[in-house]
Amino acid sequence: MKKTKINIVWLLGLLAVFLTTTGFVQPNIEDHAHILDKETKALINEKNNRYLQTKEQPQITVITVKKLNKLTPKALEFSKRTVFIVVGQKGKKRNVQIYSTKDLHGAFTADTRANILRAEVNQLRSHNNATFNKGIHFVFRACATKVDQQYQYALDKYDLSPSEQNKISHPHSVALPIALALAFLITGIIYFLKKSERNNVKLHK
């Protein structure tokens, strides 16, 4: 009886090791909604293959699902050094969210995640799949840039350029020219109204 129990424990131990080393390895791509194109998949795999060559071996996983809510991936609980980009789709509507494991929370604050998604919001809202994939490219590369900065890796062709990084660091800078133009317009309208009032006063005199 004791021998049987020992054998069972030994087999369970082997099963646990097997699942840990194979079955529980998070894949780079889970495209359940069939949204991602070949270029996007290539980008995801190539960057993650580079991460496999590092000591820390971080990972950026992209998941698409056929729903809009409750997008938190189950693997988030037991993963380490991982960023999840989750795309929910239902009909023509899409919802893109970024999640990170606890060890990357410093690099992926709520503001950082919001700024990444806001930077190319028009592409992410597009119903055109090619345009939407361009938006996902940006989101993935932005996440890769944050991961590389966190672990002090040299930036490569998969990361954002300085001007692209500026979109995330200063999300409101894009709206600044519009705000200035509106300010000039309002000032001009006020000036012309005052001038018109003065002319009317002169005519009445």
Rank of each mutant, 00 (worst) to 15 (best):
N7A: 15
N7D: 06
V9N: 05
V9E: 03
L12D: 05
L14T: 13
F18H: 09
L19P: 00
L19C: 11
T22A: 09
G23I: 01
F24E: 01
V25D: 11
V25M: 09
N28D: 13
N28Q: 12
E30Y: 09
D31T: 09
A33M: 01
H34I: 00
K38D: 08
N45V: 04
K47W: 03
N49H: 10
N49F: 07
N49I: 10
R50M: 14
Q53W: 06
T54F: 00
K55P: 01
E56K: 07
E56C: 08
I60E: 03
V62C: 13
I63Y: 06
L71W: 02
K80Y: 04
K80P: 02
F84T: 03
I85Q: 03
V86C: 00
Q89I: 00
K92D: 15
R94L: 00
R94H: 01
V96E: 10
I98W: 02
I98Y: 02
S100F: 04
D103I: 11
H105K: 14
H105Y: 05
A107K: 03
A107L: 03
T112N: 10
R113Y: 13
R118W: 15
E120R: 15
L124I: 08
R125V: 05
R125D: 11
R125F: 09
N128W: 03
N128P: 02
T131V: 14
F132I: 01
F132R: 04
I136L: 07
H137K: 10
H137L: 03
A142C: 10
A142N: 04
C143L: 06
D148M: 08
Q149H: 13
Q152R: 14
Q152M: 08
L155E: 07
L155M: 11
D156P: 03
K157V: 13
D159C: 06
S163N: 03
S163Q: 05
E164N: 11
E164D: 12
K167P: 05
V174E: 05
L176C: 07
L180E: 06
L182G: 07
I186T: 14
S196H: 13
R198K: 15
H204K: 15
